[in-house]
Design a protein around this nucleic acid. Structure first.
Lengths: 199, 199
DNA sequence: AAAAATTTAGAACAAATGTTTGCAATCCTT
DNA sequence: AAGGATTGCAAACATTTGTTCTAAATTTTT
């Protein structure tokens, strides 16, 4: 049995190198880094890692190794959640953000910039970028992005979601604001995290 | 003058390809995608983009193109800030997180997991990962990570920083807690952002 | 419209890099 | 300690892929 630490070292070098350079290392790069004397050895390690499913590689191609479990996701920033304003006009995305899967993972993620203070007591501040997982349903207590129309106003907001007595409640985490109690809401997604940068 | 849209198309293909595959395309891949008939043409485009500073490439290397403005940074997660506990034991880092430069940029960044509620009114919650830029000094009002020793207790904490009357004040954003007024502090860095993921 | 400059193509070339092979070294089992 | 299995090395080999060159096509300028 081959020393597990060596394989780990190779994997983590590939990881680091790819991240620093934007492209993967060659077998010779791996040799140089890990003081391996033969390209065949490094080549062998890479193939073992492939068999173990720990990385992907296409035979023949140069520099075509890639980590199996990419530790990043690309997530589109698609607009702003503002009370009253429509969002999600699919074409107004403002670019992609690369996020660490260690923190944010799943399919159908997107980012929204939060406008307003309605969730301030949940630690969601004006200007924060929330990470949302697209889904049509939600459970009691989830923080969601939802579209509503209560006759008075309409739009998309981020609120805590509850169902009670057949009514849908969108609860702002701000004691100065009142709940929206609605007959119908459209859930756009569940808030699974956020990014904030201070000035 | 060469059609700007073509160059943009090449660049965005390189971007997309790299992201989908984990490694950059070859000139022949570019040809196939953009229906260019000669590798020399694609090669020429790539070189122009390089001259324009829009991407980096090393002559000779295979698949060695990379987007110039790498839109990510690798940031080490190096521990936990807990009142009373030492941090930054350089070897106990818990891995690297890739973050978008659009949100977090600069040199000497690191991540810390926050323990405790001392900054809850500033929207920094227990369990959040704060992005810290290493620096020895701070300005009034900055949120900092600092080491202190007031004779009663010592350790590293995250607090808002002030100087007044020759004293250093570490101010928790939690009305239930009191300020630390100190003769000396060691600033480890300034908090420039945070990540949070909900359960 | 002619001339000049630019862009693209086609093909050949050269270098980087993956792959294979045979053997030496090391480790493990008996 | 002997024998087999595993691992590592060195060198050659094969293929991918960047690069160069020349000429044709296209666009721009005069």
């Amino acid at each position: 049995m081959l020393d597990k630490r060596k394989l780990d070292a190779v994997l983590s070098f590939i990881n680091r190198y790819t991240d620093e350079n934007g492209f993967p290392p060659t077998v010779r790069d791996i040799c140089a880094e890990l003081q391996i004397k033969s390209t065949a050895t490094a080549y062998d390690y890479v193939n073992r890692l492939k068999e173990m499913g720990r990385l992907q590689k296409t035979a023949g191609k140069k520099r075509a190794v890639a980590l199996a479990n990419s530790n990043t996701v690309r997530v589109p920033l698609i607009g702003t959640v503002t009370a009253g304003a429509p969002i999600l006009a699919s074409e107004n995305y403002e670019g992609f953000y690369t996020l660490p899967t260690a923190e944010f993972s799943g399919d159908g993620l997107f980012l929204l910039t939060v406008k307003g203070d309605s969730m301030i007591e949940a630690g969601i501040f004006d200007g924060d970028k929330i990470v949302v997982r697209k889904q049509e349903t939600a459970e009691n207590g989830d923080i969601v992005v939802a579209m509503f129309d209560d006759g008075v106003s309409e739009g998309a907001t981020v609120k805590r979601f509850f169902v009670r007595d057949g009514k849908y409640i969108l609860h702002p985490e701000n004691s100065a604001l009142h709940d929206y109690i609605l007959d119908s809401v459209t859930i756009l997604g569940k808030v699974i995290g956020l990014l904030r940068s201070f000035r």
